[in-house]
């Protein structure tokens, strides 16, 4: 994890705004992170904290009423926010891919698996139809689909959820992207299938030399596959740390709460810890620290002023007044 690794993705001070009922709200703010090549970075947080919006901002797939208003998103050094729409589109599926939560509805029901894979390959490469078909079968085989020669002529409804997620992964990887963004890829699957899919993603990461940005609310998944973790709360990064560090010594009260609310084997005697309350509404975002309303260690300063994201040690950053800038620079 040394710093001199080439950065595949750099997200710098990104702010995404959404327009609702003629008012503008910032749904994500000061998002600042990077993904090194061949690295797996996890983004965790509860529903509505802006995880998915971060992913969509990077992919350029935000809904019509939302847009990135500040910052830079660099993929292999190219700022995606300044290139043309068409150039952006050409990068999707080729240099960056995304897989979604719902494999059941991610494939177009009226086209065969083969048609959709071949269409993708022919969009981004100059392959002939026959060659694209061969490659499509090869990809299905790579992601562990049995009898790929037959599946290629089948329709999405003939496959199970796990199979469809495999097909989605095959589509995501068909053009050998530099980074795969996976938005809750295992949430809709059975636990046994979840493990298979995670294992597959890990294996393919090595095979295809790509980086993965994994978005999830499941700390178990994070512990399993990620190298580094970013914890988000209410549209901001509240903590960032290598995965082991995060689980062993979490800093931010929110991270502590999250880890405490995860059930552990052999400790089933007490009630599971919960963080009281919910993420504040966009229209009622507190002036100070956004977690102040639910924090157990809240001080007066937290309500008054918003804390900066502070580097505590190498690769560890935290946004909390409990950790004054003793050993780092404010970001």
């Amino acid at each position: 994890m040394s710093r001199d690794k080439p950065k595949v993705l750099e997200v710098k001070h990104v702010k995404t705004r959404i327009k609702m009922e003629s008012k503008e709200y910032a749904i994500i703010e000061e998002i600042d992170f990077h993904v090194d090549s061949k690295e797996t970075v996890g983004i965790v947080g509860e529903s509505g904290c802006g995880k998915s919006m971060t992913a969509l901002s990077i992919m350029g797939l935000l809904p019509e009423n939302a847009s990135v208003s500040e910052g830079e998103i660099r993929l292999q050094g190219t700022n995606l926010l300044t290139i043309s729409k068409d150039a952006y589109r050409k990068k999707r599926g080729k240099e960056m891919s995304m897989i979604f939560q719902e494999p059941m509805s991610s494939l177009n029901p009226v086209y065969t698996i083969g048609f959709q894979l071949i269409e993708l390959l022919r969009e981004h490469t100059t392959m002939s139809k026959a060659k694209a078909k061969k490659k499509a079968i090869e990809m299905l085989q790579t992601v562990g689909i049995p009898r790929p020669h037959e599946v290629i002529d089948e329709y999405p409804h003939q496959l199970s959820g796990g199979m469809r997620q495999r097909v989605m992964i095959a589509m995501g990887l068909a053009c050998n992207p530099d980074i795969l963004i996976a938005d809750e890829p295992t949430t809709a699957l059975d636990v046994t299938i979840q493990a298979q899919i995670l294992e597959l993603m890990k294996r393919l990461q090595e095979q295809f030399d790509m980086a993965i940005l994994l978005i999830t609310h499941d700390l178990g998944v994070v512990a399993e596959v990620c190298d580094r973790v970013i914890v988000m709360y209410a549209g901001q990064i509240v903590e960032e740390a290598p995965v082991l560090t995060l689980f062993e010594s979490p800093n931010h009260p929110y991270t502590k709460g999250l880890i405490a609310s995860t059930p552990k084997i052999g400790e089933g005697k007490e009630r599971l810890h919960t963080i009281e309350g919910t993420v504040p509404q966009l229209s009622e975002m507190p002036k100070g620290c956004r977690f102040a309303t639910r924090c157990s260690e809240v001080t007066e300063r937290c309500i008054r002023e918003s804390p900066p994201l502070v580097e505590l040690s190498e690769q560890v950053r935290c946004r909390c007044w409990l950790y004054p800038k003793t050993s780092g620079v404010s970001v």
Partner: peptide, 17 residues
């Protein structure tokens, strides 16, 4: 609003297509 349309966008399909 279906996810397969978003997925189609995510793999760089042309808007006309």
């Amino acid at each position: 609003e279906k996810q397969y349309i978003e997925a189609a966008r995510a793999i760089g399909t042309k808007e006309s297509k």
